[in-house]
Design a protein around this nucleic acid. Structure first.
Lengths: 196, 196
DNA sequence: ACAGGAAGTTTCCCATTGGACAATATCCGT
DNA sequence: ACGGATATTGTCCAATGGGAAACTTCCTGT
């Protein structure tokens, strides 16, 4: 039986070793910090043992890193993936939602999975069908390109002019509309969930 | 010894269950896809068992997710403002870096911790001191406001005009410069690390 | 050159755990 | 109530996490 073994696990050891080198600390010090024996840690770094999640978490903490850093995806998403360009003329209106809530917006990146941020070009029309609040996990950034936008987030209500930007926790109920005529803005959202 | 144990592991099960619900597939189908028994998977979802990294990786693959998604530490810190506005006139040049590399850029959000995205207003000058590549963890989004920018990411080199945008894996070595005169762009970076 | 040591590796071993299997429980629709 | 799906739980053996300590290198001083 062949082991195709893309083996995320093989990398963990190297990552830990690299990180420890960065910090310039010895195996023994790491052992003291984590509570593991230096022998065990050595085996881990050389990929002879794979720690369970809990242990890896302790190690990550001792190395002042996040556990996800140590698990960093193997194949560096290389060509094809990794990059997406959207030209002015190539913008495609977002399928889901679209103009549904009275806003027009187009996606500024293709829909490849694993993306951490979701960029949109928003157009606030002069009239909005349903002026409702949005409230979702994650964080949101908006940069006003043109027009004036009245923005409400939480208890605050403010008017944003071109060039103004705002960053907020998307769990705050928020909504916005153009004050006179139309307004456009670049909006980037971050969402902890995979997406979809 | 008491176990303070914030236990990242408790969350894994829930994450998997949620993700499986999203996909609308049954335990049995997941069992078939992963090669594990449905009984075992059930225990995992209920946090009665914690899978080792390799197994978790297989599960993540079957759920068409990344392993890091399943381990992602939950929402930390809620309030404390949750909102920050930067007016056109109030932009402050970023301290670290600043014009160091030949680029001018100002932060478009204050430096509160825990922020997931980091928005900047970039100005590409006509002359750049050191035209070096950047390469860091995370992802990056750029929306060109004015001027023409020659951008290189990985092996690709392209010219972006106002309104064009690009999204890419920041591990790809990347750099950019204004083609004629000056150029400005909104740049938003996402970095998996807490900070620094 | 040799003695001391610090950092890292490997061997040996056992207590713990991963994970299959089958039985049981829960939730439908008819 | 009965059947058929899906989910949970108890049992149990093989696999593994992980410690203790011996064994390497590679210094640095005398």
């Amino acid at each position: 039986m062949s082991e195709p073994a893309p083996a995320v696990e093989k990398l963990i050891g190297t990552r830990i070793a690299e990180r420890r080198a960065e910090l310039g600390i010895t195996l023994e010090r790491l052992a003291a910090a984590t509570g593991f024996s230096k022998g065990y840690l050595s085996k881990i770094e050389n990929s002879r043992k794979v720690p369970p999640i809990g242990s890896l978490s302790r190690i990550a903490a001792a190395l002042r890193t996040d556990i996800t850093q140590l698990l960093h995806t193997p194949a560096e998403a290389g060509e094809g993936g990794g990059l997406s360009v959207v030209r002015v003329g190539e913008r495609r209106p977002v399928v889901r939602g679209g103009t549904a809530f009275g806003y027009d917006y187009v996606s500024l990146a293709d829909n490849r999975r694993g993306k951490k941020m979701e960029p949109f070009l928003f157009t606030f029309p002069s009239q909005i069908d349903k002026y409702v609040f949005f409230e979702h996990d994650g964080e949101e950034f908006m940069f006003v390109l043109s027009g004036r936008v009245e923005w409400q987030a939480g208890s605050r209500r403010l008017v944003l002019e071109p060039g103004d930007s705002i960053y907020f926790d998307a769990r705050l109920p928020h909504r916005g509309r153009a004050l006179d005529g139309e307004a456009t803005a670049v909006v980037v959202t971050y969402s902890p969930k995979p997406g979809e």
